[in-house]
Design a protein around this nucleic acid. Structure first.
Lengths: 167, 167
DNA sequence: GGTCTGTGCTTCGAATTTGAAGCACTTGCC
DNA sequence: GGCAAGTGCTTCAAATTCGAAGCACAGACC
């Protein structure tokens, strides 16, 4: 037999619990939402996120790299998903005007239409699963608690694309 | 041109913000942790979760189905991951004593050893990314906010295995 | 016992995901 | 200008993921 695992030196039980709960809730939520989106509009979660980002932006456009960072996704994965969305006519890809290398994704009317069709059910589900359990002011509290961590992780070292290896 | 997307009827901006922050933080956290685990012990996040579950349980054992539900994973995916872990000698699989159909996964000494070796770095990273930004009492608050939602999602309809289709 | 339905896990095939490598353009610097 | 290094995206191959289908045992009912 062996020793029980060492208790962590860095995290106390409260923190550990909060961390686990966070991961667990996110996982459960994502899992449930994924099914709803699949049924409502045959969209994966990432695809939905991409449409939502584009749909909510002023111009309806974003560069590929920015999108990848936004949804925390690999660049090659984004290329793949953007290809699927483009094939369905939900987004369009054009080379960026200012940078010949760049590609700008733009949501199409069809994309907006689908987004609008899927959104209500999505919101309803989130509401049912998450916010039925949380009074309004708790939702605010949750957002306030998470915001600093998000900003910290966004700012500090890691972009979704790790720095490229020297050759 | 087309209409901007309909605002949701079910979620106000505060709730939407909390929801997005939750997904975003979880994604960023998972992404960062994944790299740390890969380097520290060549483990994927799921594999780490599985070892952690087993390591922290009294017996060091769990049924496959329970594990799948715990980590919010498909059953076939779990079979695959358990196969990898078993091949590396980190867990052992045996048919359950009470149910001939069931399979019980048990962490091995090597598994405990690896878990113990990876855990400190893991905890450190979580601490750095998440809890440096959160005073102790806020961690408690976060856990308290998430717990009801987790329990709700755990209890209500959806297990990780959808009910089987009638034939 | 025998049958019918349900459950636990694995196998299978198809779709997705990712990092590494490749290509094209940009920027910095001489 | 011209070269070197950096960035944006895609392509490629390999690993992972999931649901559906399959197999074996369990449990209920007769």
């Amino acid at each position: 037999m062996s020793q029980p695992p060492q208790p962590s030196h860095s995290l106390d039980p409260v923190q550990l619990g909060a961390y686990f709960a966070l991961i667990e809730v996110a996982g459960l939520l994502r899992h449930a939402v994924e099914q709803q989106l699949r049924e409502a509009g045959d969209l994966s979660y990432v695809q939905f996120q991409l449409l939502a980002r584009l749909g909510h932006s002023q111009t309806g456009s974003h560069r590929m790299t920015d999108l990848a960072d936004d949804v925390v996704y690999s660049r090659s994965g984004l290329t793949y998903q953007a290809g699927l969305l483009e094939r369905r006519g939900l987004i369009a890809r054009t080379t960026s005007p200012d940078d010949e290398r760049g590609v700008t994704a733009t949501i199409t009317d069809a994309g907006r239409e689908l987004l609008g069709r899927v959104m209500p059910g999505h919101a309803e589900l989130i509401d049912e699963l998450l916010f039925q359990q949380l009074p309004r002011e708790d939702a605010q509290a949750l957002a306030d608690l998470l915001a600093p961590a998000r900003d910290h992780m966004r700012s500090t070292p890691p972009r979704s694309a790790a720095r490229r290896r020297r050759r």
